[in-house]
Design a protein around this nucleic acid. Structure first.
Lengths: 337, 337
DNA sequence: AAATTAATTGGAAACGGTTTCATATTTGTT
DNA sequence: AACAAATATGAAACCGTTTCCAATTAATTT
């Protein structure tokens, strides 16, 4: 590969001058500028990224840390983030944790190694205090997680309110034996939603029927499994709040297979308004999340933090969610409260 | 940030010795090794990635070029690829082309800038001759595309045979007025499938009914749109081969909405065996593609090419596909041929 | 015409590591 | 005891850029 030195020699000039041409700087006369262009052309020269990164102390790369890309909600977030980042001239490294705290720390090290300029966390596996230490190594934006104590940019929706809205809707449709189904139990996200869920139950004087078997659900298969368990319980559950549409779809699918009517016997609410929630039969009631706005805001703020660092200040951007009422909860009755 | 120089000073040793410790090399006595560890600990030292990349002429990063990550087929490929790459200690940069040849070239430049050590192409937007030029800048593995003339590693399935199998199945189910629906018309992938589709038609003496409106279909929405157009045609189509399950799902969904019975009035075959094809009602007949094997093989071969370069040699890995017969084509009749 | 100021240019010093090479000290062998 | 071989260490070169600084020339002002 040709280096800047080769170009300089070929053009009979110095590295400095070539560098000026590459970076479109002034103080190079037209004739020499032309000569440099010609030499670059002739030698097929392309500036070496590693050398630039070292010299400029800047990688123009960011990382997105998430559980796994196959979850449609995450993949949509990543799609938009990559698009936006690319528009600003940044590359995107994708980091799948598979919900493993260890893996998450491994990827956070990218910040200390200076392999990325900044990082977006979509979901968080470790204690915040552990993640926090990395902020002095580079900006971190939190997207879609609720960390009260985080002194950084945090983008998302009101998870508690969303869960509350969904639960109230189930209750208004006549459900009285509800279940709360979620992904990893310990995340702050799940905690916030659970709080909203419980608030709705308490306000309507409905007892909780939760059970630990209902956690760790993140995909269609786990949704199907859960329905199997629900069926064999004594008190038949008649309403489910699921943490994501994949799980909700698995539940609805398994229910139909087993002759359990949705919503008559069992109403289901999902989360995220993934394509599948719309296409299922019955269509699944869900919480619509403004993914595009969240993703764009996250990247904008991250890049701003990179380009003009002023760290350690909490900055919260909260977007509005919407409850999309569909057939999976439509019992066509309204129970007087 | 502390540099290796700082560590050396703190430990009262030379950069060389510190470097030896970092890289776990011999010829450092235990006592000094300890001192270096202590100094690194004390200063919170982490080796700078850019400096390492420059000196070692190696980035330990690869790129995956694809149309868009939200397509479940691509996102699954990426999931597995990232997992595998990470296992080998490589980072993954994701590059979305949105089917734009220009964008693809932009990402191919990563190879020339030495910002990545190698690159996997899932789908290809440019002429192969244009892409080929980048091979001398670093290894490229083609995954899921059929480029006859490519002298590089190419991983995939027999697209032509898969389309042939799907089409024969439609014909055996009694369909006589078929349509072929695909993504970007000019890709070699689509050409290969189209050849298989036509071969099946010809072997069964069935006239082709194709129409240009049936291209450029890549998601659920376009599937829905297409069904709308199909309905208004004179010769009612009774069988559709769709290039991906998202499109097939859109078609099935829209058909049900309009009272067109699937499969009685219209049979549909999809591609990829995405989750949605299984969950739709009726479930969609599809071609199962061994995604995990393809993704793993692609990464394995790419990393092999990076670590022991021996370029410009075609190496083809073809995996077996399966036709999964489901309800969207199950007319419960067998027409004698 | 002399004194400033602006426009060009290149040498050399970073940026932060790894590796080659030379040197000094042990250890092992005959 | 003499010599070869293995171990331990650091100085300096190198990876490919960008940028500071000084030097030279051209243009402008007094």
């Amino acid at each position: 590969m040709a280096t800047i030195e080769d170009v300089a020699k070929y053009a009979g000039l110095s590295r400095t001058t070539v560098s000026r041409v590459i970076n479109n700087q002034p103080y190079v006369c037209d004739e020499k500028r032309e000569r440099v262009f010609h030499a670059m052309q002739e030698l097929g020269y392309v500036p070496n990224s590693s050398a630039r990164r070292l010299r400029n102390q800047k990688t123009e790369t960011i990382a997105i840390v998430l559980p796994r890309i196959t979850n449609p909600f995450y993949s949509k977030l990543v799609e938009v983030m990559e698009k936006k980042a690319s528009w600003w001239g940044y590359q995107v490294i994708i980091c799948q944790t598979y919900h493993c705290a260890q893996k998450e720390l491994h990827y956070l090290e990218l910040l200390r190694k200076k392999q990325v300029d900044g990082l977006v966390m979509v979901a968080i596996q470790n204690e915040w205090t552990k993640v926090e230490e990395y902020i002095h190594a580079g900006p971190i934006v939190i997207c879609n997680e609720s960390i009260e104590e985080a002194n950084t940019v945090i983008v998302g929706i009101d998870q508690q309110q969303a869960a509350y809205d969904a639960t109230v809707h189930l209750i208004e449709q006549g459900c009285r034996r509800l279940a709360f189904i979620s992904g990893e139990e310990n995340s702050n996200l799940v905690q916030a939603r659970y709080t909203g869920y419980m608030k709705a139950l308490q306000e309507h004087h409905i007892p909780s029927m939760d059970d630990p078997i209902f956690h760790e659900a993140v995909d269609v298969e786990s949704g199907q499994t859960i329905l199997g368990k629900v069926v064999h319980m004594n008190n038949r559950i008649d309403g489910i709040f699921a943490g994501c549409d994949e799980v909700a779809a698995g539940i609805v699918y398994a229910a139909m297979k087993q002759g359990i009517r949705v919503p008559e016997d069992l109403a289901v609410v999902g989360f995220h308004n993934d394509t599948i929630s719309r296409l299922m039969n019955p269509a699944i009631t869900t919480i619509e999340v403004p993914i595009v706005e969240m993703a764009e805001k996250s990247i904008e703020q991250l890049i701003r933090s990179i380009e003009q660092p002023l760290r350690n200040k909490r900055e919260s951007y909260q977007f509005a969610h919407t409850l999309l009422k569909r057939d999976s909860t439509n019992k066509r009755i309204t129970v007087p409260m």
